[in-house]
């Protein structure tokens, strides 16, 4: 029961976090590619409740930023114009979950841009870019993990179930993949493939590259589970009344691998999000103007950005709750699947 409750807790956390990113259109006030050349590298705007005359406002408000004379990234608050923040405001069009045409945003302001996490060099809203960028990075992680686990399940199950020379060949094949560090494999594999492609193609390309790199470990784990599962008496009994291989695999052997696959998924997804970020950071992943957590951080490769604009680091913080969530899920899954092996104190 404790295991189940813990599992439920982490699942709720992760569903909430993914919901936030999936509905980026609603939570983000602006379109992620919408530029504002009057507002490059604007610092995060502050929300106020008390104005300069000491009056208390009922709604939070902000002063729009105005660029200082003779500078290109220094701003002053325009204290003559207090703009109030509107909740559930109409704003730019977007499609909720990619389907539903919608204009409603969680918040917004009429007459001036409100950029709570600042803007980048083109005046694009950093908050919107982080939220939309999460869609790309998380989707890459999820799809990549899906590909890896399918490959791992297929190859591991074939090797473990049929055994003999098939097992031998497939397991020798896993060894180079296990021995080489995945970052180099990732870069090497990506270097083979064309550089100049459309953003969508680039996305699927890196998903496939990431997915193809990590199959060896899940394949090994699945093989081990299948090896022991196929020798169970209930599998023998089913063979004894004439069940074909397809039935044995589907009904008896593969269900045994479910807890290994789930735990692997919880470990692989954040790892693959990080892989996408690495590739995009190096310019091998998802290209501009599309946002991803990796290419948002790529701005930091410029020294001036690195030293002057601290809010450009924020995309790196965005991954922290996700990683903690998946870490918690992985350990909860392990305890849930196997309550006896985890020391719980006596």
């Amino acid at each position: 029961m404790i295991e189940r409750r813990k599992l439920a807790k982490w699942l709720v956390v992760l569903v909430a976090l993914h919901g936030l990113i999936a509905c980026a259109g609603f939570f983000a006030p602006y379109d992620p590619v919408e530029q504002d050349r009057q507002l490059p590298y604007a610092r995060p705007m502050k929300l106020h409740l008390i104005d300069t005359q000491g009056r208390v406002h009922m709604r939070p408000f902000f002063y729009p930023l105005r660029m200082r004379e003779g500078s290109f990234d220094q701003y002053d608050e325009d204290i003559a114009r207090a703009m109030s923040l509107k909740l559930f405001a109409e704003g730019p069009r977007y499609r909720l979950l990619g389907l539903l045409p919608c204009r409603l945003h969680l918040f917004g302001a009429a007459g001036a841009r409100i950029c709570l996490l600042g803007t980048d060099g083109y005046g694009r809203d950093q908050l919107s870019r982080i939220l939309y960028g999460g869609q790309v990075s998380l989707l890459a992680g999820l799809l990549g993990a899906g590909i890896t686990l399918s490959l791992g399940l297929g190859i591991g199950a074939a090797a473990g179930y049929f055994g003999g020379w098939r097992d031998e060949v497939l397991m020798r094949l896993t060894e180079p993949f296990l021995a080489l560090p995945w970052l180099y494999m990732l870069l090497g594999l990506r270097a083979f493939l064309p550089l100049a492609v459309s953003p969508l193609e680039a996305f699927f390309l890196i998903v496939m590259v990431i997915g193809a790199v990590g199959w060896a470990r899940p394949a090994r784990l699945v093989r081990g589970v299948v090896l022991s599962a196929k020798e169970r008496d209930f599998v023998r009994a089913a063979r004894g009344f004439g069940a074909p291989h397809r039935y044995l695999l589907w009904r008896h052997v593969l269900p045994e691998t479910s807890s290994v696959l789930l735990t692997q998924a919880a470990i692989l997804i954040p790892q693959y999000v990080l892989a996408e970020m690495t590739l995009s950071f190096l310019g091998l992943g998802v290209p501009e103007p599309l946002a991803s957590w990796g290419n948002l951080l790529a701005n930091l490769q410029q020294y001036s950005v690195l030293t002057s604009y601290w809010w450009m680091y924020l995309p790196a913080l965005a991954i922290v709750p996700f990683f903690l969530g998946y870490l918690g899920l992985a350990s909860a899954l392990q305890e849930w699947a196997d309550p006896f092996k985890v020391g719980r104190g006596t």
């Binding site: 169970r232 008496d233 209930f234 023998r236 004894g240």
Partner: peptide
């Protein structure tokens, strides 16, 4: 196969717990 059936020693492992 249907003509010859085997009953195993340990029913805990010869019956799929699912």
């Amino acid at each position: 196969r249907p003509q010859i059936q085997l009953v195993f020693q340990d029913p805990a492992s010869s019956l799929n717990p699912r």
